[in-house]
Simulated scan of single mutants.
Amino acid sequence: MDSAIDTAPSTLKAGEPADRSLPAASSAGPAGGVKRKAGDIRDRLEQEIATGTHPAGERLDEQVIAARFGVSRTPVREAINQLVAGGLVERIPNRGAFVRAMGLAELVEMFEVMAELEAMAGRLAARRIDAAGAKRLETALVACEAAADREAHDAYYYENERFHEAIYDACGNAFLAGEARRLHLRLKAFRRLQLRFPHRMRQSLAEHRRIVAAIEAGDGPGAEAELKGHILVQGERFADLVATLKP
């Protein structure tokens, strides 16, 4: 089964009007605006690839995408580069950028490895976290709570990223943190998608609270178990969501 689930044909047609639901660019200046637009486009394409709107093997045409979102090709090119870095898209010399085939079995395997890496990071963080690290972790938890209260799934995902980053930094093992970050990037689209499963965001938040409690208590085995379950359930929820997307 490909990562791009066959639920609908691509809607990226030449001459389409700009997608006006794209958030406004940052007012921080031209460079900041391009970066913001690229991130917004990446997020939209990322979700569409994960849900099968753009199936495996489809070519992503920069000009068509730029017309769709009403932007120049510069942020589109940057967005596609980010998708390439995340493993969702591959560039083929002299042909362009294409949605990469990724089977459900491969995704489940990556979630299993991710669970082990996060579990180890949590166990080490419980032994090594300092006052500054604990404060950063608590701040990230509060931000997750605020996003959950607003039912803001995408905002919650990005606060969730910061939450896990705090754990990676607190573990005191740069190699482990680097490997976790690389795999986190590969799974980003699917970790975002599973948060839209009914009640998953609230369940994730409850898991975050237990993780923080274990780390702050210096309970290495407890933090390890909580983080492992936290990631494995994401893989299960993703598989459930895929099943609901089948025609």
Score class of each variant (00 low, 15 high):
98 F>M: 08
98 F>H: 14
99 V>R: 10
100 R>M: 11
100 R>S: 13
102 M>H: 13
102 M>I: 15
102 M>T: 15
103 G>D: 08
103 G>L: 13
104 L>K: 09
106 E>M: 04
106 E>P: 02
106 E>T: 06
108 V>D: 15
108 V>M: 11
111 F>A: 07
111 F>V: 04
111 F>Q: 05
111 F>L: 05
112 E>P: 02
113 V>L: 10
113 V>H: 02
113 V>I: 11
113 V>W: 01
113 V>Q: 10
114 M>G: 12
114 M>A: 11
116 E>V: 08
117 L>N: 02
117 L>H: 04
117 L>Q: 04
120 M>L: 15
120 M>R: 14
120 M>V: 09
122 G>M: 04
124 L>D: 00
125 A>H: 02
126 A>K: 04
126 A>Q: 08
126 A>L: 08
129 I>V: 14
131 A>W: 03
132 A>N: 01
132 A>V: 03
134 A>F: 01
136 R>E: 11
136 R>V: 06
138 E>M: 11
139 T>G: 11
139 T>C: 03
141 L>W: 00
142 V>T: 13
142 V>K: 13
144 C>W: 00
145 E>M: 01
145 E>F: 01
145 E>W: 01
147 A>Y: 03
147 A>T: 04
148 A>F: 04
149 D>I: 01
149 D>V: 01
149 D>P: 00
149 D>K: 07
150 R>E: 11
150 R>C: 05
152 A>G: 12
155 A>T: 07
155 A>S: 11
156 Y>H: 13
157 Y>I: 10
158 Y>M: 09
158 Y>H: 13
159 E>W: 06
160 N>A: 15
161 E>K: 15
162 R>E: 14
164 H>W: 12
164 H>F: 13
166 A>N: 06
167 I>P: 02
168 Y>D: 13
168 Y>A: 12
169 D>G: 07
170 A>G: 06
170 A>V: 03
171 C>F: 01
172 G>Y: 01
173 N>R: 06
173 N>I: 00
174 A>E: 15
175 F>H: 11
177 A>P: 00
177 A>C: 03
179 E>Q: 15
181 R>C: 04
181 R>E: 08
181 R>T: 09
182 R>W: 05
183 L>N: 01
184 H>L: 07
184 H>F: 12
185 L>M: 13
186 R>N: 04
189 A>V: 10
189 A>S: 12
190 F>G: 01
190 F>K: 05
191 R>T: 12
191 R>D: 07
193 L>E: 14
193 L>I: 05
193 L>D: 14
196 R>A: 15
199 H>D: 11
199 H>F: 10
199 H>I: 01
200 R>F: 10
202 R>L: 13
205 L>Q: 07
205 L>V: 05
205 L>R: 07
206 A>D: 15
207 E>T: 06
208 H>S: 07
209 R>H: 03
209 R>E: 12
209 R>Q: 14
209 R>N: 04
210 R>A: 04
210 R>H: 08
210 R>S: 07
213 A>W: 05
213 A>S: 06
216 E>M: 15
217 A>H: 02
217 A>K: 03
218 G>P: 03
218 G>S: 08
218 G>N: 04
219 D>W: 08
219 D>L: 03
219 D>H: 08
220 G>A: 14
223 A>P: 06
223 A>D: 09
224 E>F: 09
225 A>D: 11
226 E>N: 13
228 K>S: 12
230 H>W: 10
233 V>L: 14
234 Q>Y: 09
235 G>N: 09
235 G>H: 12
236 E>F: 12
236 E>M: 12
236 E>Q: 15
237 R>S: 15
